[in-house]
């Protein structure tokens, strides 16, 4: 379905995840974040860029891998995205919802 995000018509699924990553831009990420109650900072963006990079390389994401990446410690990952770090950061990054259980 389509949703207007940052004044653009964006394709999203019923949970609000972008279905076409090529439509993503920073303003879209910012607006999704605000909807989730998050004001983006450089620290947040660093994580988002890492997630998008992994997505481009087709690497499945998990909390463990992110903790080991050197980009963000697990504790800080939860501080930045408290309501569900992997889920919410992926939504902001415009990538699919991760299927990992760890």
């Amino acid at each position: 379905m389509q949703k207007v995000i940052a004044s653009l018509n964006i394709e999203v699924n019923d949970e609000g995840y972008l279905t076409d990553f090529s439509q993503w831009n920073k303003a879209i990420g910012e607006e999704i974040a605000l909807y989730e109650g998050i004001v983006m900072t450089d620290e947040h963006w660093k994580v988002i860029e890492y997630l998008q990079d992994q997505h481009r390389k087709n690497v499945p994401l998990s909390i463990r891998k992110i903790g080991k990446s050197g980009v963000v410690a697990i504790k800080d990952f939860y501080r930045l995205f408290p309501k569900g770090p992997l889920k919410i950061s992926s939504k902001i990054a415009g990538i699919p919802k991760p299927v990992s259980c760890v």
Partner: peptide, 15 residues
Amino acid sequence: DIPEIEEFLYILSAS
């Protein structure tokens, strides 16, 4: 990608 017990405990604690 499921860690061993000790590492898992650290992940749980950090989470």
